[in-house]
């Protein structure tokens, strides 16, 4: 009699242990996914600023939308640090090597990524708004082959990637949050010391004048 109760208890405990370890593993996977999505978003963000500045550089000043130009021209937001720019995914040639929007105080050179909290996300929404306003659906695509066409295509691609990265990041965050909010996760601290992830909730619309560029 006793032995069968004992067996039952052991089996129940084992099932609980497997369930909890599975849940913890799943939480771990979801946090990892959020981390990866963050890195992707940081890179895509830098990429978009670079593409905007490259695009502005090949436009005659009269044709560049003024809101866009003034956003990209705020020199006080650039880091000016080559190491920082490298960390953001490589240094573009010429004047496009600086990336606005991150704080000037850069972590030590051994760090490989910018501080997430130092990024001014409101500025990203402002850039999206400027792009949407600057590229209405009526805007004509530049003649193929020239530097303007290449820059426009790169800008369109960078805008799409940024929008995709925001969506994927917030999606990863949402699924992670759902798991974090479960009672069993909170009571048994299955998430360990991982900070609670937050969505960036940025605009994901892409300027209509850029949406339909094609690749060769």
């Amino acid at each position: 009699m006793w032995s069968s109760w004992l067996t039952l208890a052991v089996v129940l405990l084992a099932v609980c242990a497997v369930y909890l370890s599975q849940t913890a593993a799943r939480l771990d996977r979801l946090h990892l996914k959020v981390d990866h999505a963050r890195l992707a978003l940081i890179a895509a963000r830098a990429e978009r600023w670079r593409a905007v500045r490259t695009w502005l550089a090949v436009q005659p000043p009269s044709r560049a939308p003024s809101a866009l130009a003034s956003l990209a021209d705020g020199s006080r937001w650039w880091t000016g640090s080559p190491a920082a720019d490298r960390a953001l995914g490589g240094t573009a040639p010429g004047s496009c090597s600086t990336v606005p929007g991150v704080s000037a105080e850069w972590p030590g050179s051994e760090s490989t990524a910018p501080d997430w909290t130092a990024i001014d996300w409101a500025r990203e929404d402002a850039l999206t708004a400027a792009l949407v306003a600057g590229f209405p659906s009526s805007v004509a695509a530049p003649a193929a082959g020239g530097p303007a066409a290449a820059a426009t295509q790169a800008l369109a691609s960078a805008c799409r990637r940024f929008s995709y990265c925001v969506t994927f990041h917030d999606d990863a965050v949402a699924s992670c949050q759902r798991m974090r909010d479960r009672r069993v996760t909170r009571l048994l601290r299955l998430a360990g010391y991982a900070p609670y992830p937050r969505a960036v909730l940025l605009r994901t619309d892409i300027a209509e004048g850029l949406a339909r560029t094609s690749v060769g």
Partner: peptide, 14 residues
Amino acid sequence: SVVTGQILDVYASV
């Protein structure tokens, strides 16, 4: 040509 570009952008962002 448009759709493949968009899918390649998804690839690049993951």
